[in-house]
Amino acid sequence: MKMKPLGRTGIEVSELCLGTMTFGTQTPEAEAHAQMEMARDHGINFFDAAEMYPVNPISAETVGRTEEIVGNWFEKTGRRDEVVMATKHSGAGFKHARDGAPISAKTIPEAIEGSLRRLKTDVIDLYQFHWPNRGSYMFRQNWAFDPSQQDRAATLAHMEEALEALQAQVEKGNIRAFGLSNESAWGTAEWLRIAGEKGGPRVASIQNEYSLLCRLYDTDLAELSVNEDVGLLAFSPLAAGLLTGKYQHGRVPDGSRMSIVENLGGRKSARVFDAVDAYLAIAQTHGIDPIHMAMAFTLQRPFMCSSIFGATRIEQLEHLLKCTEVTLSDEVMKDINDAHRAHPMPY
């Protein structure tokens, strides 16, 4: 398993990261613990969670359960020191945490204390803001994105306040590093600028969606990542399962994400299945498993820190782990880029 630097923190993380968002709903605790064991035994030292998890569905009754399941594994196995643990602070609008309050100097310590307690740990290695207070173009909001109503002064004041609060948590030993999620190039650049000028933890990473079907990161954010050492933590590298091919021709396997979330968070569209067909054809032509091709594509991007995947069942995890043995040739990459031009934004 290749290791990558987490920004300029000095922390090294595996190129694959175990996502845990189904732990507690689709994935029961015993299965989740088996997945963590297998992931760690195969060299994955990076786990990602969030205070709002699990999903599929999200409910008041289950919020925080994923962190509890991970914490129970740490307590049971004593392997906490082997893992770089990332989690996230939910922000404005999430009604199941702090009545939907935005991220602030007041909510940051409260949220961190809750995550520390559920994870049964003394420190969070990477603490991320799940989405910006001002909103985001992620999750299909890019089609009507309009930043003209943002209050720039309020946004910058919030960033200063939040960085000061985060620094206090660093000094207390509660967190080691800070990351963003569902962020833009401008937002990330401002977090970096303010930390450089006024202090606070420097942004180490950005967790945004990225896959063969979602390549919004390829331009401005890619340039920022490379030049500022702020690597991408790609979520949904298999496009919520679309790139496995299991949903082609109207199929909806029992227990799959589509059986619970019919539109896959807006990813299901009239055009997406033609795009998936194009990538499946490339994999077949070159004799590559489509899951391994999709994952290997993310790992070979120049701005990638770690690719976050989720597996409902341990058999899926076992299969996916073989992607690290795959290197995509220039010919395969050319075919992928040709398919991307033909199907540039399928959802």
Results as ranks from 00 to 15, higher is better:
3 M>E: 11
4 K>R: 15
10 G>M: 14
11 I>S: 00
15 E>I: 15
16 L>V: 04
17 C>D: 15
18 L>P: 08
20 T>V: 00
22 T>I: 10
23 F>P: 07
23 F>A: 09
27 T>G: 00
27 T>R: 07
28 P>Q: 08
33 H>A: 04
36 M>S: 07
37 E>W: 00
40 R>W: 02
44 I>A: 03
45 N>R: 01
54 P>F: 00
57 P>A: 05
58 I>P: 03
59 S>K: 10
62 T>M: 15
66 T>G: 02
68 E>Q: 00
69 I>T: 03
71 G>T: 05
72 N>G: 06
72 N>L: 04
75 E>C: 01
77 T>A: 01
78 G>D: 14
81 D>A: 05
85 M>L: 07
90 S>I: 03
93 G>T: 07
99 D>L: 05
104 S>N: 08
108 I>K: 06
108 I>P: 04
111 A>I: 00
112 I>S: 02
112 I>E: 00
116 L>T: 08
118 R>A: 02
119 L>K: 01
123 V>R: 01
125 D>A: 06
129 F>M: 10
134 R>G: 03
135 G>D: 10
136 S>M: 05
136 S>K: 03
139 F>L: 04
141 Q>E: 10
142 N>F: 14
143 W>P: 13
144 A>C: 05
145 F>Q: 11
149 Q>L: 01
151 D>W: 11
154 A>Q: 04
154 A>C: 01
155 T>P: 11
157 A>M: 04
162 A>L: 07
164 E>N: 12
168 A>V: 12
169 Q>T: 03
169 Q>A: 12
172 K>L: 01
176 R>I: 09
177 A>V: 02
178 F>G: 09
183 E>P: 07
184 S>C: 14
186 W>I: 11
190 E>N: 10
195 A>K: 13
206 I>V: 12
208 N>L: 12
208 N>Y: 11
210 Y>T: 08
214 C>A: 12
218 D>T: 06
219 T>P: 13
223 E>W: 12
227 N>A: 13
229 D>A: 09
236 S>P: 11
238 L>N: 02
241 G>L: 03
245 G>K: 10
246 K>R: 14
248 Q>I: 09
251 R>P: 12
251 R>C: 03
264 L>Y: 06
265 G>N: 05
266 G>H: 07
266 G>W: 06
267 R>N: 02
280 L>K: 14
286 H>F: 13
287 G>I: 05
290 P>D: 07
293 M>Y: 06
294 A>K: 15
301 R>N: 14
302 P>I: 14
304 M>G: 13
305 C>Q: 10
305 C>G: 10
312 T>D: 00
317 L>A: 10
319 H>C: 02
319 H>Q: 07
320 L>Q: 12
321 L>V: 04
324 T>Y: 14
324 T>M: 15
324 T>W: 06
326 V>W: 15
327 T>R: 02
331 E>S: 05
332 V>I: 08
334 K>E: 11
337 N>K: 08
339 A>C: 10
342 A>D: 09
342 A>C: 13
344 P>N: 11
344 P>R: 04
345 M>Y: 15
346 P>D: 06
346 P>C: 08
